[in-house]
Design a protein around this nucleic acid. Structure first.
Lengths: 217, 217
DNA sequence: GGATGTGAATGCATTCACAGCA
DNA sequence: TGCTGTGAATGCATTCACATCC
């Protein structure tokens, strides 16, 4: 019975990304009290085919019940385990500007398995100030903090022109994954996971699709 | 000589995404005064192969100079034209909470071809208030505003539980592209472009990659 | 020599279609 | 009957490798 997340041979990267979307959708169903969902239904909600959903999930184990579908609680719990967010990830925030503070105020992280354990900024005037339950520490303390508290992830919300320098510091301090909000291409060693959000680039994608869609008028 | 961006037969979607990254990198080169770049160099900066870079660009025209590489000014100008950000896109912001205000304060949009022309919120207490040069309008004014001012894009920074309703309003108002920051799967008609940013999902991707990387210890 | 642009070859990812189970 | 899990078939995207040009 205990399906042991059998650490599969190979999984396409896009499938890993979709896994997070499945989880988000399942959690939304949980809130509404829904018990089961079929691959078809999950696919429609997210814009994938049913075959895609089944194949994605099957890379990680046998979670479905023929004739029934997937049980919402069961599957979401499995996916959390696969992603690793059944445990909490200690996460630091670097950069307490507008964006950094907005992220800090966003309440959703904790329930998703991420806890912001410390906030850093290089601006003298901000250091020591408090936002919510966090007081701002100097960036020079990053290394010591990360080592003492075993934080593994960092959110980088600093200006573009210092982002690479700060990223280097983070890597040196032992941070293993960086979520970068600065609009630059960071270079990090291959053993460090990197994920980026660039709002301008997202808008450009919209612009392109409209711009180049003079077909079906 | 005038290479006419020949509206190519078919372009892989991933190539379109990378186009934005090429542009961002080229603009960074422009600031530093660099004149030319080879596909190899551009690839190294962004983590792609040289062949990938050449093929991506070749989908849209012949921009390179054999023996030389690509001229930075020339290529970035071409890409802006292809994406459509050589003109300015009128963009509205819906949701003036922490995140919305942080986006509003972010100065980078204008030079990228996006101008935030109006800000909306449904909170009575915020309506009429000003942030920077913008005063907050009631969401009930969206439709009229969009129609009168021909805004085409919207940034959606509202709580998850109302995001779909607001998105429906936006579509009804005539908005053609939505950049969604709410952590839900929005449903929009196929003629509306949709792009999403979910910070929790980005963090999950980092977690997964570390969690499942007990290989090279 | 040093670079692009591009058909051909390869490698991934998605979809099909169906056996098998509740 | 309704749905999953999965090999086989298809369809995309990337990489190779080389003719071509400055």
């Amino acid at each position: 019975m205990a399906v042991e997340t059998p650490r599969p041979a190979f999984v396409p990267n896009p499938a890993v990304r979709r896994l997070s979307y499945y989880l988000r959708q399942l959690e939304s169903y949980q809130k509404k009290g829904r018990r089961t969902v079929s691959s078809k239904q999950l696919g429609v909600a997210l814009g994938y085919t049913d075959a895609q959903v089944r194949k994605d999930l099957a890379y990680f184990g046998q979670f479905g019940h023929p004739g029934i579908g997937y049980k919402v609680d069961e599957l979401s719990s499995h996916i959390r385990q696969i992603i690793g967010t059944d445990k909490t990830w200690g996460t630091i925030l670097v950069g307490a500007g507008n964006l950094g503070r907005a992220l800090l105020a966003y309440a959703g992280f904790e329930s998703k398995g991420f806890r912001i354990v410390a906030v850093f900024d290089s601006d003298e005037r901000k250091i020591g100030q408090s936002y919510g339950s966090h007081h701002i520490r100097p960036t020079s303390d990053i290394r010591l903090y990360v080592q003492e508290h075993r934080a593994r992830l960092a959110i980088l919300a600093v200006p573009a022109d210092v982002a690479q320098d700060v990223a280097d510091d983070l890597v040196n301090a032992g941070i293993q994954g960086i979520l970068n909000f600065a609009p630059v291409a960071l270079v990090v060693p291959p053993y460090v996971a990197l994920s980026s959000v660039d709002v301008a680039i997202q808008l450009e994608q919209l612009a392109f699709h409209l711009h180049s869609a003079r077909k079906k008028a």
